[in-house]
Structure formats: C-alpha cells, structure tokens
C-alpha cells in the first residue's frame, strides 16, 4: 500500500514538473485583452477580426488629427532572464489602409518597423534580446520617420507572442 502511494506521488510530481517546464519553454501569447496588456488613449475593441477573435484598433496620430494611443504587452512577472524572442500578430483589416508602425522591445531590445498593410493574419517576427522579467513590447500610433503616414490609416494592437527558450 505504502509503495503504491509513493509511486502515485512520484508520478504526480513528475507530470506537474514536466508540464510546467515544457510550458515555460514553449512561450506564450500575451493577449491584448488580458491583464498583461496595458493601454492608454483611444482604442476601439474589435471582435470581428484578430488573433483569438479580438483586437484593438484606432487610427494613426498626426498633428491635429486623432489622439495619441499607446499599448504595452508585458511578460509574466518572475520570467527568468534569458534571450527573449518576440512575434507580433497582424490581423485582417476592415478594408481601409493600415499604418506603418514600429514595435519597440523594452527595456533594451530592438525597434522593428512593420507595415501592417502588408500582412493579414500572420505572426511577424520582431527580433530578440537578452532581458529580464521586466521585458515588454510597446507600440503606439505615431508616424514613423521615413515612411508615409496619414490620419486615415488604421493601427492594430493584437496578440504578442513571447518565448524565452
């Protein structure tokens, strides 16, 4: 009886450890409608399009048109240090032209320009950097120097995929 109970305990601990460690290895999606996403400024909730059936959308900010909006995707607290790989999900649009924006990987990662008009329902790789548990990705509706920009273009905040293999 004792041996059987002991075996059950060992098996349970094995499975829990295996599940936790493999999940941590695979990475996870930071959804824009989760508590790991913070937003400021105007964003419209869109349920027609987007990864996981939801996305936030607003328009590009130019002088005198629209307002400034900003979204941050945060990794789970306690995430171990290491090399962080980031992907941004670019959803379908609503038939209007989408904006060219930049994703900034913080606190010490690269800034990657992505033309949201060029892609529809793709994960786009943003690069990697060595970071800590304070890592986050930032994207706003500002124009990006060197690119065309106007206030009629749509900007999308959707899922962000993070992995720390």
């Amino acid at each position: 009886m004792k041996k059987r109970i002991s075996l059950i305990r060992i098996l349970t601990a094995t499975l829990i450890t295996f599940f936790v460690t493999t999940t941590a290895y695979a990475g996870y999606i930071i959804h824009e409608n989760s508590s790991n996403f913070s937003k400021s400024g105007t964003m419209w909730s869109i349920t027609q399009y987007g990864q996981n059936g939801h996305a936030y959308q607003y328009m590009q900010y130019t002088s005198g048109n629209n307002s400034y909006s900003n979204g941050n995707w945060y990794v789970n607290s306690g995430e171990p240090s290491g090399t962080y790989y980031w992907w941004a999900y670019i959803p379908y649009n609503l038939g209007q032209s989408d904006a060219i924006i930049d994703y900034q990987l913080k606190p010490s990662g690269p800034t990657t320009v992505v033309n949201q008009e060029s892609y529809a329902n793709y994960w786009v790789y943003l690069g990697n950097f060595s970071g800590t548990s304070s890592a986050y990705a930032k994207m706003d509706n500002n124009c990006v120097g060197g690119y065309s920009c106007d206030w009629t273009r749509q900007v999308w905040w959707d899922g962000m995929l993070f992995s720390n293999p």
Binding site: W87, T111, Y122, V124, N128, Y147, L161, P165
Partner: peptide
Amino acid sequence: GPTSPPTEDNQAFIVIHPLDGVFPSM
C-alpha cells in the same frame, strides 16, 4: 531569426529581412 516557429499549430508566420525592419525607409 527565431529558434522555432511562433506556435505549435503551424499558424502562418513571416520572418522579414532584418534590414527591412531596421532601415527607416519606404
């Protein structure tokens, strides 16, 4: 480039040329 695709269910993904994302030009 990444070390693995973004998701296990083989969702479509794009790896842009690094200089496409870094050089700020149309």
